[in-house]
Amino acid sequence: MKEVSFGQYYPVSSFVHRVDPRLKIIFLIAYIVAIFLATSFYGLAVCAFALILIVAFSRVPVWKVLRAIRGVAFLILFTAAINIFFYRGEGDPYFSWTVFAVYKEGVLFSAFLVIRLILLVTLSSMLTYTTTPVSLCDGLESLLTPLKWIRFPVHALALIMSLALRMIPILSDETERIKSAQMARGADFSSGNPVRRVRAMIPILIPLLISAFRRADELGEAMEARCYMGDKKRTKYKKLHFTWRDLVAFLLLAAVVTGVVLLRVYVGGVI
């Protein structure tokens, strides 16, 4: 049986892994706000420093973290290129050709944007590297609880999310098995024109769909047999508690936000 490493979760135990998922989600949101509040390289430096601390205490290898950036490399390069060539600054351009012109301000501004994007992507992927999808769901459910006041089905949404996540490895296992079985019967998935390749997927998709429906049916029955009634009077198996780690993480967040805001007010934009 193939072990499926699903999502991006990197399974080690570290300080960052054990911070409460709710706080991690809030941290990410507040951090993104802070990045956009930062108007100077100093502000970004504060954010970057916090990020380096997080990476250092997460025990996730640096190459893994860098790989997350590689995924959006195109977007980053595109943004940088647009800004370098089209930003109109004062003074003489370094270089100019038809509509393209490179100014000092343009270079600085695109460097600023690139750093911003890298920080954003890296912290988001740190969240998925250090938090299992299940506890991410738990955290999200807990954070969304206030929405129950406006009759938003928070619990159902959380259940759908966690079931979907739970089914990913099962279905990917199943896909692998059906694919092997059809390959053993001579199916060929890698040659021919696109139409042919899509048609070649039919012997995988139909059995997969049937088994997905069967599993959904069985799961529904099993839940009903255990008297599942939605969120009425349900307790949690894993309760979320705030600990000293969460306090440390919170203080770090507070420091970043305060730092960025103070720099914005007293130093202003430096581009």
Binding site: R177, A181, A184, R185, A187, P203, P207
Partner: peptide
């Protein structure tokens, strides 16, 4: 030839004939 565990999970065609003929037609 390879028959996997629970081989009935590989059935997909509209008729038994088509399903059995699948391997023959590909090979």
């Amino acid at each position: 030839g390879m028959v996997f565990q629970y081989p009935e999970a590989q059935l997909f065609a509209e008729t038994v004939f088509d399903d059995v003929a699948f391997g023959l037609k590909s090979f």
